[in-house]
Design a protein around this nucleic acid. Structure first.
Lengths: 364, 364
DNA sequence: TTGTATGCGTTATCAG
DNA sequence: CTGATAACGCATACAA
């Protein structure tokens, strides 16, 4: 008796109109029962709900609702990399975390999009997905093109760690100041012979020692922003580029640095905590004690899995807050307000991985 | 001249109808120009495109299109954990990777959803988001409730690493067989004194030694599936539970195991590669050589960042394929076909972290 | 509190 | 190749 479908609509899915009819109320009343946007009499509500159950109606069709409302409740997050790469990076992960939180308050879901304009035919893009706004992470290059489409549709856009022009709010870091602080910290500890392990210079992700000419060609904004002030403090620093922000990449770079006891530095500045963790492993592997023999500093302030008991000296970036702020900015823009760019400040954290420069050098 | 908006519609956003009117064609023709679903005369197309540019029309509104088409091009991926936790797990990351690939072929985007039914008011859920299908990862407990709503809406559902009933296709692993294989491998190498470092027993994520009574209460399916056959091979194995699948958790567990030289095992079976990596670090910390003094096996076959030069002996699970298969299953179901559950086979991989049991025991 | 009427912006169909 | 027509399923202003 209760599983028999509506005889009038043999196989068609029930709509709110069907439910209303079955319950003997108007469609608008039924709508209100489901949305709760207006008070309804208890009896009415129960009648509607009963009719819905009877007809197997599972609530308003979100597609129709979003057309009518003009909102889909979905915000796109566009990443320039393959999704796997993006979520391998703890900072991006944390940012996403804050972002989803910030958007959840707004009542929005997150649609993951790769910034591949020519993806599978019909694949949703920033231009074709039913989104209310977009957040671009690490915006650069061709993403700017995609951006135009979004802009044209009048959708709010926020950029994290990137630059999409003046009229697009961005959430950025004071990379330069933070990097300078780390460098000064090491100099104050007496270090003079310092090496830098950097993030990739560009999309090529080549690794190894980098000559000054090469350094001038860096295109990745973050790498450049963190390296420049470091070199101002330590102009003669040896610069080794990592292929990616990974522990094993830091390990490789570290092995390079510690291969020759006579040329090894007394301190290593890594441009990410993951790299620093790898450098520390390389140091331990080489029989060096951290920080007695070698100081290592990182950048990011993430909880590095696999670092053991060390507490990294690093610049703690508010990654989660960055994401949350992006979410808030989206919310504000969706509410018609103007959102502004925010520059976040990193907090220097002195951990257990940096210490005074060893007094004696060149002990073969 | 070209930036002057349509005088007839002062601030309203242009629609395809406006464009058609301006171009002197019918709406359906304009629609076809944008969708490309039918051939159009070159002149017509150019006229329409010009009108669109003139009016600042950026293409069809995806919301309206999805209502009309009955498809939004979005597939939900529901995770039971906080997003951060989910993406911290390389296996889930890899699965997501395959999934997004599989879905991209289908032309679908991925909407990230936490399985929090009572999230922020208005937050999209499996029941209220404009999705075409859903993939549940690690489905258990209350997610089954959520599932009902999706089911009621007649949306295809696929489950990865979970059980949502017989009529829901699932992508699962032969955890038991793979675990047994690892255990037999170690036994064949002569190991008799083996310890197991397990994944969490349940949501509580308590860590430490586990008594047999406790083992009987394990609710996490994966943990149980991998532990049972292990204990059949090594009934007396010491069982230590980790709080999570993390290197540092493995490190902690490893320190417990290696604290007392007299009771330490000759081999450790970790239920994930990350845990195994931590155990290896603990071993090295304790001055033990891997595999000469201690053998360590993992599970998953991921590329562990931070493992240095070791190659883990492990069961390689086809995580990416699992995700891709889920994507394919969704595609099939969306095409009206029946999708079936798939049981994936892990591949045993002998690495450099397991070796013959050391001949002498109890060397103080 | 409930009902009535209207259109949100598209696209599929089918005839021309 | 193009045009007329009719939904798609709902939520809101407004009247009752």
């Amino acid at each position: 008796m209760s599983s028999d479908p509506d005889p009038a609509s043999p196989r068609r899915r029930a709509t709110i109109a069907d439910v209303a009819r079955a319950a003997g109320v108007s469609p608008s009343t039924a709508s209100v029962v489901f949305s709760g946007k207006a008070p309804t009499a208890r009896a009415t509500r129960e009648r509607v709900l009963a009719a819905a159950a009877e007809l197997g109606y599972a609530g308003p069709d979100p597609r129709a609702a979003s057309l009518r409302r003009g909102r889909s409740g979905i915000v796109a997050v566009a990443l320039e990399e393959h999704l796997r790469a993006a979520f391998l990076d703890p900072i991006k992960t944390a940012t996403m975390d804050g972002l989803t939180d910030g958007l959840a308050e707004l009542g929005a879901g997150v649609l993951l999009l790769r910034d591949d304009p020519e993806a599978g035919a019909g694949a949703p893009t920033l231009a074709t997905a039913p989104i209310d706004a977009a957040v671009l992470i690490g915006c650069s290059g061709r993403m700017l093109q995609t951006l135009e489409a979004v802009h044209a549709r009048g959708l709010p856009v926020v950029v994290i760690e990137g630059d999409a022009g003046d009229d697009v709010p961005r959430m950025e870091l004071d990379n330069g100041e933070a990097a300078a602080q780390i460098a000064r910290h090491l100099r104050a500890l007496g270090h003079r012979d310092v090496a830098v392990v950097t993030l990739p210079f560009d999309g090529a992700k080549v690794r190894g020692d980098a000559a000054p000419e090469r350094i001038a060609t860096i295109t990745t904004p973050v790498t450049k922003a963190r390296l420049t002030p470091t070199l101002e403090v330590f102009p003669d620093a040896r610069v080794v580029s990592a292929g990616d922000s990974l522990i094993d990449e830091g390990l490789i770079a570290g092995r390079t640095l510690f291969a020759d006891r006579r040329t090894r530095p007394t301190a290593v500045i890594a441009q990410s905590d993951l790299l620093a963790a790898g450098v520390i492993r390389a140091a331990e592997e080489a029989g060096l004690r951290v920080p007695e023999d070698i100081s290592v500093a990182g950048f990011d302030g993430i909880a590095v899995d696999g670092l053991g008991g060390h507490v990294l000296t690093t610049a703690v970036q508010p990654a989660v807050e960055k994401g949350r702020a992006a979410g808030d900015a989206v919310a504000r823009m969706l509410a018609g307000e103007q959102a502004v760019s925010i520059r976040f400040t990193c907090t220097f954290r002195e951990g257990t991985t940096t210490g005074p420069a060893p007094a004696e050098r060149s002990v073969p």
